[in-house]
Simulated scan of single mutants.
Amino acid sequence: MPASPSSSAQAARQALALRLAHLIRDAHINGRELSTRCGWNPAKTSRILHAKAAPSDADIRAWCTACGAEDQADDLIATNRAVDSMYMEWRRLHQAGMRRVQQDVFARNAAAKLCRAYTSNVIPGFFQTVAYAEALMRAITDFQGTPDDITEAVAARLARSRFLYEGGHHFVVLIEEWVLRSRIGTIQTMAGQLNHLLTVMPLPSVSLGVIPLGAPRTVWPLEAFYLYDNQHTVVETLTAVINVRQPREISDYVRAFTGLAKLAVRGDAARALIRSAIDALE
């Protein structure tokens, strides 16, 4: 497995830094001369070259001008923006509220025919009830201290459930049993959510597996991740969302999902675990 879920972003940042270093060499100058031409401290150039600081659009334009490579500025800016989107802090994404992020996830689900999800923390969004989503988003908003647009965000999140019924989409989901027993909201909220899981399980678009608490681990519990058509993996951590598009890393997440799927129970056995979690609430 990758050493860190943000390794794709760091590797891409280093690749961009290498391209900027090549511009300096091609211009037959050194980092100090580049810094002088750009009008900033040499320490800034060093941080960018060592991938410890992300350059702004203006920094890249100044860099290219200093190296006589203005024609490469637009391409490097586009690359830099793509790298920046790989690792996004939740507070930055939620700085105006949660609705916009939910709309982005809706578009991602709309484009993907196959979504594979491993959830080790909460019920996935496309399975959530209104009450569960409201309670969860309230907890996240309070923790992050970001603007409250929960009503709009919940509506945007629940809109994803339409893909369970239309458009030829398929959802293969693995849920850790402790997610069924981790209460979000009131007892009634959690009971309603668990009963909703039983309702969606028979849908042709859904394949749901539950990993029992006592399952012998060949793949250790991981952070929640979502695989979209083998083209894009989204990993959710406490502080950030990581977008993985490097084929090697996507392959690792596919392998992990395959291993986790072998630990899961399905059908009547999965329903029994869900019903047991409901009974425990009472």
Rank of each mutant, 00 (worst) to 15 (best):
A117Q: 09
A112V: 03
N80V: 00
D149S: 06
M137K: 03
V101R: 04
D142A: 15
I140W: 12
D84R: 15
R81L: 08
H94G: 00
D104Q: 14
V154N: 04
T119H: 14
T119F: 08
V122T: 13
A107G: 06
A117E: 11
A131F: 01
V122L: 11
S85A: 15
E152V: 00
D142W: 03
Y132G: 04
Q95S: 14
A153G: 10
R100S: 08
V154C: 04
E152L: 11
Y87L: 11
D142R: 11
Q103K: 12
R138C: 10
E134R: 14
T119E: 15
L136N: 05
V154Q: 07
Q95C: 10
Y87V: 01
E134Y: 10
M86N: 01
Q144L: 13
F143W: 10
P147D: 11
D75C: 04
A155D: 14
T146M: 06
D75F: 00
T79K: 05
D74E: 15
A82T: 12
N109Y: 15
A117P: 00
H94F: 12
N121W: 07
M98E: 09
A117G: 03
D148K: 01
P124R: 08
A73F: 04
G125W: 06
A96R: 10
M98S: 11
E152N: 09
F126L: 12
E134C: 04
Y132I: 10
A78V: 07
D104R: 12
S120L: 01
Q102W: 03
P124A: 04
T129F: 03
E70S: 14
A111M: 06
F143H: 12
R138Q: 13
A131R: 06
E134V: 07
Y87M: 07
G125C: 06
G68K: 04
S85L: 11
A111R: 13
G145D: 04
Q95E: 14
V122F: 14
